[in-house]
Amino acid sequence: MSDDADLSRGERLKAWLSRARYYAEEFYSAPYRGAIARAKRDEDDLFMLMVFSELMGVPNPVGYYTLELQPLMLERFHDWHRRMGMEHSPLDDMRCC
């Protein structure tokens, strides 16, 4: 019994520490998770607008570069236009719903 305890003392300490770290991290981040995720989403939305601005008739000086990003952003397009208050896709040539 005591051998067992001696053997695993280091491990137990490690497990205890990682548990403490988990609690501390949760305690730090949980209250503000929502607020921070929303702020990040707002930034992403702005980026989205930049990427798709040409398609909506807003001239974009870096359009040549953002064109390349469009396929990458496509997945989030549907959520984005819904969030922006448009029931359906605002683009004629891009129908997602």
């Binding site: 609690y23 949760e26 305690f27 949980a30 209250p31 998770r33 929502g34 995720a37 929303r38």
Partner: peptide, 20 residues
């Protein structure tokens, strides 16, 4: 959704419910 709705350990939840 990982943003607002996140199942949280009850001790953690008590901790920040209490501190708020």
């Amino acid at each position: 959704d990982g943003i607002d709705f996140v199942p949280t350990n009850r001790y953690v939840l008590w901790g920040h419910h209490f501190t708020s």
